[in-house]
Design a binder for these strands. Structure first.
Lengths: 129, 129, 129, 129
DNA sequence: GTGGTCTAGACCACG
DNA sequence: GTGGTCTAGACCACA
């Protein structure tokens, strides 16, 4: 994998380091990056996208904390082979709870019928999956 | 209208002043706040939620800039009559779209089945309504 | 003169008390109000325009300070007969200096040619005089 | 661009943060600040004029809301490229209109002859240009 | 009573 | 280094 696989939008309101982490997550989940694959070096990515090396480093560190990447001494970062979705569904659903609560509150503030919101969400969840 | 209509989560990463502005937008779009309705005073809201008056003031000022509120000097803020309240369901649903998109993204990142999330949301939306 | 001679726009950014003072100034300068003419009482004006009596009172007091009105005990306010423009032209021009300075600064910030600004001002000063 | 390009009058009735926003508007319209130009940092401006950083920050935020400035995270504020700078003379003159109107109003209130005011302004506009 | 402005100073997010 | 948010508290303008 070379630096061009990642895309970065410095003008976006989303922090650059988070853009990178989320792309890594998707690339790994989608199989474009497999366990053991080497990642481009921090300075490679930083140079290619003209961003601060510290920003890339921070993204890699977060991804490592999250279990997505592993740091191989002398070889750089590689995709971790630890199995994902190790937690039970119930635990993962619990992580979604705050967002669900917020959605419910907003739905009520907008006085929208529950069915309408559920239908829209069903549509969104069904797309390209 | 009293200060309890607004809810504030100081622990949220979203700035308090923006939480308030967005709630106002939804409450007005949903018709719970109609043109001419008086808002609770800055001091009232600040006291009720134990936050700084300036934070509330900032929210009100932004809402005024946005055309949501009007300032009646010496009397306080009221819902602007230019901000046509009680919008169509389609428009109100559009205001929910960002939250829905975020929920979909998180659902995929957590690799949760759509049905599970939809069932949980159905439960939450059905409560005390 | 009755209360209807004054008009008030509570929605204007200009303070109400100042709206009143400036109208009085114009009405007197234009001869619609002559020396000795009685003004409507504070409560009359306040009731007619549904504004706070204190606001009207404040406007009358300022006009009195300015020499426009006189307070006749037991009879209310009347238009003063003190001659206006008692100061020399040079002194009055000096009062305009801050505004002139600001205009010059703004002209330079906008990089506008002096001639253009002077022509526009000439036009404005020539209208309905 | 250094902090000295902005001038601030703490004694003016106009709020400092608004003085700054309006100066930015004019400097950009006049072409003295072009798209992409970096602005002095909040702390720099605050230190130079001995005002509170938050006051400057407020001005910058408003200018950003207005589309005049853009925030480059970690780098500071720059003139937005959406705010097409160097506008036509007619547009720039339009920005001067409120000040001109105010000057005309004051001239009439002071009962000054137009020629006198125009001559004084001509002198002021001619100086060190 | 209302909101607006400013200050001094702390802490955070981002690069 | 950058700007953003929040606080506590003062003072002002307006009605």
């Amino acid at each position: 994998m070379d630096a061009s696989l990642l895309t970065v939008q410095p003008a976006s309101p989303e922090p650059i380091y988070r853009q990178i982490v989320e792309q890594l997550r998707r690339l790994i989940a989608g199989g474009q990056l497999g366990a053991g694959d080497a990642l481009p070096s921090v300075r490679e990515v930083a140079g290619f996208h003209a961003i601060n090396p510290m920003t890339v480093s921070r993204a890699y560190s977060l991804a490592e904390t999250e279990g997505l990447l592993e740091r191989l001494r002398g070889k750089g970062m590689v995709v971790a082979n630890t199995s994902r979705s190790s937690q039970t569904e119930a635990r993962r659903l619990a992580l979604l709870e705050p967002s669900l609560q917020a959605l419910v509150r907003q739905t009520r503030e907008l006085e929208l019928p529950a069915g309408l919101v559920l239908r829209r969400l069903t549509t969104l969840l069904g797309e390209d999956q």
